[in-house]
């Protein structure tokens, strides 16, 4: 009975989210002719888009007519996943501490770190260390209201002082929404590169050979670190000390070569879509798409056909739904071998 429905449901869910994003844009902003054009194109892409746009408009109307806000139980503006950065002695916290353990820790006067989701983190004098596991995505709101979304298999250290908000991205990929505070710069150290922001939204991915920085909103300054450029000492003439990046701009800072000031124009919101559980690809190889999916899921996709791995595709998927991607591959594979060229390996069979 459920054959085929998960994909239809998934498409509808994605469409509902897109409709919600359009509603937010329509309510708040004066859309440019270009954006209105995009809205029209989106509507004319699928009847599901039209249906979801009509539904979300009804919801908007119902919310406008809803007069019972005060009768609702009091809403705490503080979200559940707030990390309190308290000073404390060096002590690794256990994964998902039990309640008794927490009570004991409080009794012992130890600092408590509140964080939603799995994984474990250690509280140290020099900051809070956060690690994410495979398939674990986490969002944290920091003491100043800035938000950080952490991709799977990442590690970062958060340290706030009176004059500086420091994040060390030790590995992996994170997205930052930074509140404005001119007196306290927000600095992300990704080894090879440091990124400084005042109030902005940007994405930093630390890969073995390079660091990729993408700006969604505002401006950041990217600086290459000398310590990262081992071997070749870049000559001062070729090394830009700092590169300023604006919205929808991206730079890749290599660790083994001097950084060039080559800035790419990208669709930054699409690059940052992983923070809301979507994976958006534009002309990306299947191998790269699979790498992203595997990061976000316990079940791992294997590509058995090298030709398929090199193929370039575009599309939007739910990060948590590798089956939809496999169905997409099967649907777009002309060859009958397509059925066996890609498989999904469940975690227990690995």
């Amino acid at each position: 009975m459920n054959t085929g429905t998960p994909n239809a449901e998934e498409r509808r869910r994605v469409a509902a989210e897109q409709a919600a994003a359009w509603l937010v844009a329509l309510r708040e902003d004066r859309l440019s002719a270009h954006e209105r054009g995009e809205f029209v194109d989106w509507l004319r892409e699928s009847p599901v888009h039209v249906a979801e746009m009509l539904r979300i408009s009804q919801l908007d109307q119902a919310l406008a007519e809803f007069g019972d806000w005060t009768a609702l139980p009091a809403a705490t503006p503080t979200p559940d996943n707030v990390v309190q950065l308290l000073p404390g002695p060096s002590r690794p916290a256990a994964r998902r501490p039990r309640f008794a353990g927490l009570t004991r820790a409080i009794a012992a006067g130890l600092a408590i770190v509140v964080v939603a989701g799995g994984g474990w983190l250690a509280l140290r004098e020099q900051g809070t260390v956060v690690r994410t596991q495979l398939a674990e995505r986490r969002e944290m709101i920091l003491a100043d209201g800035s938000a950080v979304s952490i991709a799977p298999l990442s590690e970062l250290r958060i340290r706030y002082t009176a004059d500086r908000r420091s994040i060390e991205l030790r590995k992996g990929h994170a997205h930052f929404d930074v509140t404005h505070d001119a007196r306290r710069p927000f600095v992300v150290d990704a080894g090879t590169a440091t990124v400084q922001a005042v109030g902005t939204s940007f994405d930093v991915e630390r890969a073995p050979g390079s660091v990729r920085v993408t700006v969604v909103e505002g401006r950041v300054a990217v600086t290459q670190q000398e310590k990262g450029a081992t071997g070749s000492v870049p000559s001062p003439a070729t090394v830009p000390a700092r590169v300023m990046l604006g919205a929808n701009e991206e730079i890749v800072v290599p660790s083994q070569a001097p950084m060039t000031a080559v800035v790419h124009q990208v669709n930054a919101p699409a690059q940052a879509a992983w923070t809301t559980g979507s994976l958006v690809f534009e002309d990306e190889t299947v191998a790269e798409v699979v790498r992203r999916f595997n990061l976000h899921n316990q079940a791992q996709i294997r590509i058995l056909d090298p030709e398929l791995a090199a193929r370039r595709i575009s599309g939007t998927f739910r990060a948590s739904d590798p089956e939809s991607f496999i169905a997409f591959i099967h649907a777009t594979s002309a060859s009958p071998a397509g059925d066996r060229s890609v498989i999904l390996v469940e975690p227990h069979s690995r």
Binding site: R13, A16, E17, A19, A20, A21, L23, V24, E28, E52, R55, I56, L59, D60, L63, T275, T276
Partner: peptide, 12 residues
């Protein structure tokens, strides 16, 4: 903005 979008999607 993101919370609003999520709220709409969740209500939907």
């Amino acid at each position: 903005k993101r919370d609003l979008i999520r709220a709409y999607a969740e209500l939907r």
